[in-house]
Design a protein around this nucleic acid. Structure first.
Lengths: 207, 207
DNA sequence: TCATTTCCGTAGGGATCGCTACAGAACGAG
DNA sequence: CTCGTTCTGTAGCGATCCCTACGGAAATGA
């Protein structure tokens, strides 16, 4: 009964979604046309619309899948690491590696795929903005918990630290897209970590 | 002799350029159409093309003017401040104020106006990328000079510091576009400054 | 085999894109 | 005044945008 009736789909839906992810990642929502997508998928428009509804819905599915795979390292770090410092250290270091992985486009799709949009498609921009701000709130919550736990001093500002680390990560994505290499992004991660409140200034290679 | 022949232009070219700057700043190159521009300028397409050649050339003039006005604070800080620390401190603090100025769109046009681009217009994206990378090299040159002067320790890494501060500034632009306020961006600037090599880690108040 | 269901390729619709041909309008020069 | 020059509005070009109507093709179920 699980078998579908009618003519079966002649292409691999998951592979097609991968191609779409790659294109949206590289050129953004507006920069990727249906013609680009169908050409990369090796299909024709009606097949795309039958499988993915429309461009907007396809993009949503791409973003969702991106968050569950390439973007999952952030949630994992926040969830798995025992201390806030370990979580942010892991996030920053993995971001440096992830954003410069030669196996896919540089940078982060959620950060860069919908920044230039006509007024009619503002909702796409807003959707990614919401995802970014949700991440920012997760950062802040984790840092607030660290203050409550005593891991961070009582006068530490969780909101400011959250915005700072989010800004560094977004800046790393932009730098990766501008061609900065992995080693330099790793150095950026270490510099950002050296601001951690209470960290002795002789960090890895100081003094 | 300075008087022009023929029918005079019926609109203020500088004011029209301001409107164009505002639109490109807010929606980016691809997100802004000729119809958007002519409507905001209160003119019709032939007038725009007579005054600004074409969309690409208009955008270049907008970028140039932006760099000479809103974006000039970076060059000014690097040129006018006596020490590298003072230069970067001023840049970061002025970026926080500039990117959240309610008098114009949030963030930086050069950072965010051409990130999602179809393959055919890649050259616009590349032009802004070159501007960003040129800034990055200026950062590095100033930091390298600070090492040579003895302001920074000999084992400081000018390239890594340059990428770090550039990333923070780009991240601040993105955060401003996502709605983060001026006070929080200022806090981000102070956190970024606290990584300055040799700075004592407790730096709640500067100057 | 036949009916049903679903997908595929062709072909194109309606809207918008950047841009421009054209003719009339507003100026200076003579 | 007329002439030449430059700008302005109308109107529309070809290309591309996202999307879909349509009929044939390929599968299942009877």
């Amino acid at each position: 009964m699980a078998t579908t009736q009618g003519r079966p789909r002649s292409f691999d839906r998951a592979a097609a979604l991968d191609r779409a992810t790659h294109l949206f990642w590289e050129r953004g929502y507006e920069g990727t046309s249906i013609a680009d997508l169908t050409e990369a998928m090796g299909i024709h428009p009606p097949s795309l619309y039958a499988a993915f509804s429309d461009k907007r819905t396809l993009f949503e599915e791409v973003v969702e899948r991106y968050g569950a795979t390439f973007g999952a390292f952030m949630d994992a770090a926040l969830r798995e690491e025992p201390t806030a410092y370990a979580a942010f250290a892991r996030m920053l270091r993995e971001a440096a590696d992830e954003y410069t992985d030669p196996g896919h486009p540089p940078g982060c799709l959620i950060i860069s795929a919908a920044t230039n949009v006509p007024a009619a498609h503002r909702d796409v921009q807003d959707a990614l903005c919401r995802l970014r701000n949700r991440n920012l709130e997760r950062f802040e919550a984790r840092l607030r918990a660290a203050v409550a736990d005593g891991e961070l001093p009582a006068d530490a500002d969780p909101r400011a630290l959250a915005v700072f680390y989010a800004a560094v990560i977004q800046g790393m994505s932009q730098q990766a897209r501008d061609g900065v290499g992995r080693a330099q992004l790793r150095a950026v991660a270490e510099l950002a970590l050296s601001t951690w409140p209470g960290t002795p200034s002789p960090a890895p290679k100081q003094r």
